[in-house]
Design a protein around this nucleic acid. Structure first.
Lengths: 204, 204, 204, 204
DNA sequence: AATGAATGAGAGTTCATTCAT
DNA sequence: AATGAATGAACTCTCATTCAT
């Protein structure tokens, strides 16, 4: 409750305000959903007046778009390529698993966004785009891994990619709450098995 | 001035009104999400006054609970047992696929409910319960199918069940929009393949 | 400040509420202009909640339209025909004069509406309509009065009607404040003189 | 990075800024009325920040006062005396007519100001002052014109002045829109006739 | 002399809920 | 069993004004 002494000018210089507001909105969405998202609460979390929020984002919708962009960015970061095809595949899966652990809110927020996209064509387009990139990337990785003799040719099909992504989406877009965490781990493990990536022992 | 005596039971008798309101709410949630759910609109869809809605459901929450019950019921119906274990398994998968086709809104509504359950312990409990039943049922079916020599023993593990349900949840709880329908079909097909159920050729 | 005891059910039964709100808005416009018109204040003047106002008028604009209709009605009432043409002419002028005395707010409200009509085509149409009726009526009366030998033929022109109405509009649409009341009387007197209607002695 | 030194007086020197802001406010009032007058929009029209506006005018009210002064000045300019009394009279009428044509916004702005003066004593005083000067001037001109034998003695009364000014005010203070322009011309013509100034043929 | 950033105090509008009938 | 009328509490968004720079 006490305001920290503003000795060091740590407080946001320029557009950290913007970023802070996006983060707060992100957090609020995870906490109360779009249903309970209130501009005043977002502003309060950053410690500014609502009017300030509207100074940066003309409308609530604009704020939500920014949250969408942030969430998409966080997700896409797990698609960065390094190592052999099989390694990249493994890294993607593990990176995703780690992301869900580090950022437990991401699932909720992405879920809210995915649901909302059903009523919001612009948002739907953004999400579909990322989704398609995801499919293409995974398909490409599996294909090259098979070519390089690292995976069994039988997994180089659209259907396999479809199941894998479906399962991953389930982890990513929904509260891990009811899909208890041992099931999450099991899911990741079994995907690696079916793909033919020898599952290394967990460290957790 | 005098309204004709309502002796003949032409208009909904008693709690058809209730059911109609639940259906309308269900429909509204699919259309506008919890974010946009308005008691007035629900009442209007049934053609009654808002106050009438509150006669049947004291609060908006009560109405939502009823929608939850309805949605859960619809889903659980696909778990009904008939035939051999492998047949039941197949039936469940196909029943689910059919349900998604027949009732395209169900995914949206279940998704909304699942997300909301993250903030609503009572709702979370109901959903988790159904979820656990799902897991147990699937596990049991696979186990018996293996015992009866209909499936390969390698699929009789918790991890396999976890992936399968994760993939199915993805289909069930999220707008099929971005997971384009061919991917949905592919997913179902590949699950059958991995389980060792020979995928019959699709109709349609 | 004390709420009057609601012993007698004098309080508005049905759509007196509507009328009361219109009257309050009318009064508020006279008092603070459109610039200062606040739905909350209008509602407060009637003693109801703002939400109640919006129950009757979906938007502030709708309320303003109703005020326009009310004001136009009050004005048009002075155009009712009785007696010979010259009598009707006299009656119209005197009726107008009386209206300005009885309803000192009318000028302000009509003025606000007239000014607003410059930015509001729909409102402009309504006002122009009344205005045209006014012109036509006056022109007709003068014409018939001339035919009946009650007025000098020289006044039977569009230009005369234009001046007369211009002068009357000035009285009607603007605060009588600065056009001090003796000038208002003088204006009415002189119009009668120029038209050839012998001005009767004032009673005030 | 370095802005060129503002040695050359290309940009407005000192209080051209002030004047520009007043003109913009004047323009805005004509366009959207007091109801829609926004300091931000005024500043934007000049191309400066709102804060800059507040540097020149501490409050919105101060800006409005300046607009009032500007509008009054423009009007009073038509009262400048040149020629014989009858000429001055004619010049005043024609000058006014020309002003309304050249500056179609003036009517709107003066109308807004007149209406506002009903709630603003200070503004009312300023307007009444101008108004009284107008009356006195007109009265004086007519009186002298009669003395010089240029007009009929019958028009040398307060009542005549009252009607004439009432009619002129109607032209000046209200949107010419509904008082269609042919009526405006007719009004000016008839005033000249009644005063005994032979109306010269119009040029357009 | 000028501005970007910030804000307090509202503004119109919405909505779940209540209650007399 | 059903409704029209009413409301408190909020919600998003706006705006004149301030202030450090």
């Amino acid at each position: 409750m006490t305001t920290e002494p503003r000795t060091t000018r740590v407080s946001p210089p320029k557009d950290d305000r913007r970023a802070a507001l996006v983060m707060a909105a992100y957090h609020q969405i995870a906490e109360v959903g779009f249903e309970g998202l209130r501009t005043r609460d977002v502003a309060a979390e950053v410690g500014v007046n609502v009017a300030t929020l509207h100074y940066y984002f003309p409308t609530k919708e604009a704020l939500i778009r920014a949250v969408l962009a942030h969430a998409m960015g966080q997700f896409r970061a797990t698609l960065s390529p390094t190592g052999s095809a099989a390694d990249q595949l493994r890294n993607h899966l593990r990176g995703l698993r780690q992301l869900l652990i580090d950022e437990p809110n991401l699932g909720l927020v992405l879920g809210e966004l995915a649901l909302r996209s059903a009523r919001d064509p612009e948002m739907a387009a953004t999400i579909r785009e990322t989704n398609d990139i995801w499919h293409a990337t995974l398909r490409g990785l599996i294909h090259r891994a098979v070519e390089q003799g690292q995976l069994d040719p039988s997994v180089d099909t659209d259907d396999v990619v479809a199941v894998v992504i479906a399962a991953l989406r389930s982890m990513t877009l929904l509260p891990a709450d009811d899909a208890r965490s041992e099931r999450v781990d099991g899911t990741f493990r079994q995907i690696e098995r079916w793909l033919g990536l020898e599952p290394r022992e967990e460290a957790t």
